[in-house]
């Protein structure tokens, strides 16, 4: 049997979950033996060229590009995993959800103290820039998500065990302490 193919992405996240993935330390060598990485910041492959077995996504969706990316993952991955608080609940970026988008954009581009008074006062609107969504969405509100790995970030052990389970089909063996947070 060929190795399972894994793709990963960070949407409206901070890459902290990917950092946590690297925290599996030397087990990364085992991981390389176990799976093949496809589209992912880990190997910098930008486009899907084949069907993947597992897609792992960090961060929620705050703009149209995130949505596009997420839908692309759903199309190209058999199993989709939401990794971490932002992917599962929206997380820190979702703190803007109670503030009207207009206010957010005006604060960021027109009213903020770091604006150079000499610059023209506009809210960026080039067609190449992703469009901001009315609020930050968790992944499962946009596409079907198969598994959720909680944490901010999820602990390396949790990510490791979950990947191992998905790659080998062995039973999930995660002590409660690994995903208990208070």
């Amino acid at each position: 049997m060929s190795k399972p193919i894994v793709a990963t992405a960070s949407l409206a996240g901070c890459f902290g979950c990917h950092m946590s993935l690297l925290d599996i330390d030397d087990r990364i060598l085992q991981l390389i033996d176990l799976v093949e990485f496809h589209k992912s910041p880990v190997d910098d492959i930008k486009k899907f060229t084949k069907m993947c077995d597992v897609g792992i996504i960090e961060g929620g969706c705050c703009n149209s590009e995130n949505v596009e990316n997420l839908r692309d993952f759903r199309k190209n991955c058999k199993i989709l995993v939401a990794l971490g608080e932002c992917a599962i609940m929206g997380g820190l970026p979702a703190m803007r959800n109670d503030i009207p988008v207009k206010e957010c954009l005006e604060e960021a581009y027109l009213g903020s103290p770091t604006i150079d008074p000499k610059d023209p006062k506009i809210i960026p609107n080039d067609d190449d820039i992703p469009m901001i969504l009315d609020r930050v969405y968790p992944l499962h509100e946009i596409v079907k998500i198969d598994y959720f790995l909680p944490g901010c970030p999820p602990r390396a052990d949790l990510i490791w065990e979950a990947l191992l389970t998905l790659a080998t089909g062995k039973e999930l063996n995660i002590p409660y302490e690994v995903f208990k947070f208070d």
Binding site: V101, N125, M131
Partner: peptide
Amino acid sequence: LLKSVQESCKVANR
């Protein structure tokens, strides 16, 4: 998607 970007596009005039 279309509905969810209305507001920001309006504010940014696009």
